[in-house]
């Protein structure tokens, strides 16, 4: 039988591990709760724990999510959902890397229309290509490639154009250029952005922190209330700068900065946990237990029934919070 928890690498009871985790967090000057690859229950429980210990919340994929968010909250955007893309998009532009492929089957609600799928490759030339494309669409006379002219014409004549990108693979200024171009197009036609969500239920965790704290990710509670600062509450930066002394990590594997501080790891059963002072093995949300997760296929939160009733991150986080003995 495999251990349910480890203390300093040795098998231990779950109760002992929870007590040890609470002791570490309770004594910490500046604790981190990071990784955060968890379901909505886990995210809400992590917020409760962070409030109780005055900790910092960060997600392993937050950097990409914040790149998208920074474009939205600095310039604005017009986006859509994967469902509308499938049902109505007659022209799809895939921008940069990490966007996969898209079938050219006709849109399901407009089966008589052909669907064009075009691509703007990633790499060093992407900013230049996007700038040329936006300028072409704005009616500027430019020496641009035939491929760019073709994309511009396709977007201009589309009835439902969609531009897809992955913030994890795309520079913030490129995303802003894409969103500005979409905005320009909507003066005369309809075109929407589809930012692909990051891994580890990033979009779901971002939403939960939004309704619980009023802010997106990278939130800290050291002053007793939520503060949002993408630079200050960057877990990797804090680790490198020696600003945190304990981290509770929820994810598939420990981060590369794990050796910088005392680690409490909530990991899927069977994951190696070398270097963690406390390890508690948990189920995979939506697989080993029921979970609410952001569904990339719909762009919305959805309920996934798990195959069993394995221990959830939320249960562990709630138990640690209760073991702290502070009112929350």
């Amino acid at each position: 039988m495999t251990a349910e928890a480890l203390l300093a690498g040795q098998p231990a009871s779950r109760a002992a591990a929870i007590a040890a985790a609470a002791a570490l967090l309770g004594a910490s000057a500046n604790p981190l709760i990071a990784g955060l690859a968890t379901d909505i229950d886990g995210a809400e429980a992590a917020i409760g724990l962070a409030r109780a210990v005055g900790g910092v919340l960060d997600h392993t994929a937050a950097a990409g999510g914040l790149r998208d968010l920074d474009v939205m909250r600095q310039a604005g955007w017009i986006t859509t959902t994967p469902l509308l893309v499938r049902a109505r998009a007659d022209c799809i532009l895939l921008v940069g890397d990490g966007v996969g492929d898209f079938p050219t089957t006709p849109p399901t609600l407009a089966p008589a229309q052909a669907r064009r799928v075009l691509r703007l490759p990633g790499g060093a030339a992407l900013p230049h290509s996007l700038a040329l494309l936006r300028a072409l669409l704005a009616g500027r006379k430019l020496a641009a490639s035939a491929a760019l002219h073709e994309i511009a014409e396709a977007l201009r004549t589309a009835q439902c154009g969609v531009v897809i990108w992955s913030a994890a693979h795309t520079d913030g200024l490129c995303i802003e250029m894409v969103c500005g171009m979409i905005d320009d197009l909507n003066r005369a036609t309809r075109c929407f952005g589809l930012p692909l969500p990051g891994p580890g239920n990033l979009a779901g965790v971002m939403q939960a922190i939004g309704w619980q704290c009023g802010f997106p990710l990278r939130v800290g509670f050291a002053r007793g209330h939520a503060e949002h600062d993408p630079w200050r509450f960057d877990a990797a930066r804090m680790a490198a700068a020696g600003e945190a002394d304990v981290a509770l990590w929820i994810g598939a594997a420990l981060p590369d900065w794990a050796a910088k501080m005392s680690m409490i790891a909530l990991l899927p059963a069977g994951t190696p946990a070398e270097g963690a002072e406390v390890t508690i093995f948990i189920g995979r949300p939506g697989v080993d237990h029921d979970a609410v997760l952001h569904e990339p296929a719909t762009g919305a939160l959805g309920f996934r029934r798990g195959q069993g009733d394995a221990l959830s991150a939320a249960a562990v986080l709630t138990a640690i919070t209760q073991a702290l003995g502070v009112p929350c």
């Binding site: 909250r73 939004g210 309704w211 619980q212 009023g214 802010f215 939520a226 949002h228």
Partner: peptide, 27 residues
Amino acid sequence: TNVNTARLLLPELRGSAGFAGAPESEA
């Protein structure tokens, strides 16, 4: 989701006392 987007769109309007246009759920 629309209300939550309003929260995420406007961090600069939120002081420690909260932003009345889109307060967090507890408030």
